[in-house]
Structure formats: structure tokens, C-alpha cells
Computed example of a mutant assay.
Amino acid sequence: MKKILMVLTSVSEIGDTGEATGYNVAEAAHPWKVFKDSGHFVDFASIQGGQPPRDTVDTEDPIQVAFTEDETTRAGLYNTARVDVIDPSQYDAVYLVGGHGTMWDFPDSEGLQNIVANVYNTGGVVGAVCHGPAGLVNVELDNGFRLVEGRRVAAFTNDEEVAAEKDKIIPFFLADRLEEQGATHVPADNWAENVVVDERLVTGQNPASAAGVAKEMEKLLAEAIHQEKAEESDEADAVRAEKDAEKAAKKAAEAHPEH
């Protein structure tokens, strides 16, 4: 079992439009189910802490309903930890949930940047979907490179922003900003599922890509578990071989005692 941190926006309004927003429930619920079904432990955090705002719940989506009614999840979302106080070493993966609000509070959050960088630097998995990749902006690794530099990524596209009529409201186009920081943005058709994996960075284009991002993250986590078990087995074999050698040496000494 691995520990995964899901990070949510604390912004409840799209710019100064008065239009309510928050984290996208589908983009939280579907990955939550993938992680939960795989036996992993999921924690929640938000930029400001407390109870994060959320977008509308689709009551016809049983996974969203289950997510909002799960007692453990409700307790975790009731008072999320602030990203600034999170210890990244406690987590094997971090997943950045989308929602338009992330465009305002993810990019400049040093606490979030610290979590993402530390998880990746220590061999963990980083995932983000839709507007969640706004939290990858400005993340620098120990090697001095930006996390997205030289990497293929997916995120909400410029065309989707226009189709959603948010292109005149958002502070920047996410796809453009990622490319400005050295990434290669890989778009698909509007609203089509699109998941891109580049080493231990997994990104998705839109809500339809959320479950796919989680599934690819799960594959990487499963590989890590398999490797850890193999290493543990090798260590156990080495200890067993050492003990067998000691027993053999002792038996030989007993059979040929010195006079």
C-alpha cells in the first residue's frame, strides 16, 4: 500500500466574475476510486487548508456520489491540511486535482511546489489533470531543471478554454505557460480523453482523463512495489545464505576439531 496526497484548490470564484468554482469533483472522485480500489491510502490537502470549495456534483455519476458520501473522505475534506505544513516525505505520490480555481492559487504556492518537487526528487509519482497542471508551473527539481522542462505533458487546451468561454477570464493559458517553461504540450480533440506519461510524471487533458491519469499512476506505483519486494527478497536471500554459510562452517569445525 502506498500513500497518495490529493491537492485541491482553495479558490471559490472564477476571477472576479462572481461565478462559483472549486475543485472538480469528477477529477477527484474517479482517481480516488482507482487509488482506493488498489488498496492505497489517500490524504487530502488544499492551498489554504480547511474545507475546500467544490464544483457541482453530478448526482447521476455513482462514483461522484460515492466519493461525496464516503465517511472517511468527508472527514478528510472537512478540514484539509494546508500545503505549507505537509511533510512530503510521508507520500509516495501526489495528485493535483483540477478546477478553474487552480489557475489562481496553484502556480505561486511555494508549499505546493515544495511537495511536488520533493515527491519527484525522492522517486515518487506526480500526477495532474485538466487545470491541475497549473501546480507544475514553477516547480524546480534538485538538478536545477524545471519539472516540466523537456517533458511531454497534457493539460486543458486553449481550444477548450475558448469552448468553455473562460479564455478572457483566466490569468493565462495553461498549455502556453507549460510550453514557455520547456514542456511539449500534447493536445487531443476537445473533451477527449488524453493521458500522457513521461517517466514518473502523469498528466491528463480534461475531466474525461482523470481516471486514466490515476490508472497510469497506479501502474507506476505497482512497479515500485514490485521492485521493493524484489529488493526485500534479495536481502532475505542474502541473509539466509549468510546464515547457511555460518551453519556450514560451524558444522565443519565440529567435524574436524583442532587438537
Rank of each mutant, 00 (worst) to 15 (best):
V139K: 03
E199M: 10
K243H: 13
N190R: 13
E161S: 02
K2W: 10
E179W: 01
K250Y: 08
V186R: 09
A222T: 15
M217F: 02
G18T: 08
F172Y: 15
E223V: 13
E228L: 09
H256N: 15
T122R: 14
Q113V: 00
P53V: 06
E218D: 15
D167L: 05
V197S: 04
I169V: 15
A210T: 07
V11E: 14
H256M: 07
D244H: 08
H30C: 11
D61S: 11
D70M: 02
A164R: 08
G182F: 05
T203V: 09
D189I: 00
I115H: 05
N138K: 12
A241D: 15
R200Q: 14
G111I: 02
E228W: 02
H100M: 11
K166M: 15
Q51V: 02
V42Q: 04
D198L: 08
A117T: 07
V65N: 06
E232K: 15
A29D: 09
E180T: 08
G123H: 08
P187I: 06
D92F: 06
H256E: 14
R146T: 12
S89H: 12
A154E: 11
R152H: 14
R240C: 04
Q48V: 04
P207C: 04
A134E: 01
E110M: 08
K243L: 14
A211G: 03
A183W: 06
T203P: 10
Q51A: 14
A28K: 06
K247M: 04
V162A: 11
Y78V: 00
E27L: 06
A26C: 02
V197C: 01
D84R: 02
T72F: 03
V196M: 01
A28M: 09
D37N: 15
L112I: 06
A236K: 14
I63F: 08
F35I: 07
Y91E: 07
L141E: 07
A210H: 06
H259W: 14
V153M: 09
D87Q: 11
E161V: 03
T73C: 14
A155M: 10
